[in-house]
Amino acid sequence: MTAALRLVDLTVSYDRHPAVHHVSAEIPAGEMTAIVGPNGAGKSTLLKALLGLAPRVEGRIECTARRIAYLPQQAEIDRSFPISVLDTVLLGRWSRFGGFGAARHADLHDAHHAIEAVGLAGFERRPIDTLSVGQFQRVLFARLLLQDADLVLLDEPFAAIDSKTVADLMAVIRRWREEKRTVVAVLHDFDQVRRDFPHALLLARELVDVGPTARVLSSENLLRARAMAEAWDEHAGACEVPMRLSA
């Protein structure tokens, strides 16, 4: 299976204290992969490293994607800015028309189609600060649709939203898989991961396992991940780069 992402001895550090420690793994192309692990395991940090948003990265990230779309956690988004649903979705085409250009007819058509696809037809002129958490998550998924990316990174996409919205957004994710796009999502619901995501990466700052979900989420692996998280010393010395002997 072709890899969309290859992590080679990846360490992500804050003040030289690792949040992700010496991880090597492959994420298959055209597949749905869940990143799971205990709280504080480095899951969101790993996504940010893939985007070049982490402060200090060692090792190597190899990516075959031409376009990457990213959905951050809702808590990281300021919804107080006065902007409509339609204009928020159009931001998915920002790379095409920038801050001083204008959306073309095709962009407007695609934005309306994306809004309808996530179940928000008729909400185009609504300010985003009037939406529920679930409605706003639908808006963010519509914005992702406009980005037309072959790699989609989702950070806790189903946090604090209702079951109907989860089901509708999972339908969008399945369509991405049918279109051979790669989806990587940070998730907490193991039952959902087992049901919907064929591939998983279990992280406890260090890699526990990566591969088929049924194997990765075995009881033995989950116990190991919990033990690794509980044993992690937040006050340990700074991570040292290992010495490499020349041949």
Score class of each variant (00 low, 15 high):
Thr2Asn: 11
Ala4Ile: 10
Asp9Glu: 12
Leu10Tyr: 04
Val12Ile: 06
Arg16His: 07
His17Cys: 12
Pro18Phe: 09
His22Gln: 14
Val23Trp: 10
Val23Thr: 14
Val23Ala: 10
Ser24Val: 07
Pro28Asn: 02
Pro28Met: 11
Ala34Val: 13
Ala34Cys: 05
Ala34Trp: 00
Val36Trp: 00
Val36Ser: 03
Asn39Cys: 11
Ala41Glu: 01
Leu46Lys: 05
Leu46Ala: 00
Leu47Asn: 00
Lys48Arg: 15
Leu51Glu: 01
Gly52Asp: 09
Ala54Trp: 01
Arg56His: 15
Glu58Ala: 05
Arg60Ala: 13
Ile61Leu: 01
Cys63Ile: 10
Ala69Ser: 15
Gln74Asp: 06
Ala75Lys: 15
Ser80Ala: 15
Ser80Leu: 09
Val85Thr: 15
Leu86His: 08
Leu90Pro: 12
Leu91Thr: 13
Gly92Met: 11
Arg96Thr: 12
Gly98Arg: 05
Gly101Glu: 15
Ala106Val: 13
His109Tyr: 08
His109Lys: 09
Ala111Glu: 06
His112Ile: 08
His113Glu: 10
Ile115Cys: 05
Gly119Asp: 05
Leu120Asn: 12
Ile128Trp: 07
Thr130Gln: 09
Leu131Asn: 00
Val133His: 00
Gly134Ser: 05
Arg138Phe: 10
Val139Met: 12
Phe141His: 11
Ala142Ser: 09
Arg143Trp: 01
Arg143Thr: 11
Arg143His: 00
Leu144Glu: 01
Leu144Thr: 03
Leu145Thr: 08
Leu146Pro: 03
Asp148Arg: 14
Asp150Asn: 01
Leu151Ile: 02
Val152Gln: 07
Leu153Phe: 05
Leu154Ser: 13
Glu156Cys: 01
Glu156Pro: 05
Pro157Asp: 01
Phe158Lys: 04
Phe158Met: 09
Asp168Tyr: 05
Leu169Gly: 05
Glu178Pro: 08
Lys180Glu: 15
Lys180Gly: 11
Lys180Trp: 12
Arg181Pro: 09
Thr182Trp: 08
Asp189Cys: 09
Gln192Ser: 14
Gln192Val: 14
Val193Ile: 14
Ala200Leu: 03
Val208Gln: 06
Ala214Phe: 10
Ala214Gly: 06
Val216Gln: 03
Asn221Pro: 02
Leu223Gly: 10
Leu223Asp: 10
Arg224Cys: 02
Ala225Cys: 02
Ala229Gln: 04
His235Pro: 05
Glu240Phe: 03
Val241Ser: 08
Pro242Met: 10
Met243Asn: 04
Arg244Pro: 01
Ser246Asn: 10
Ser246Pro: 11
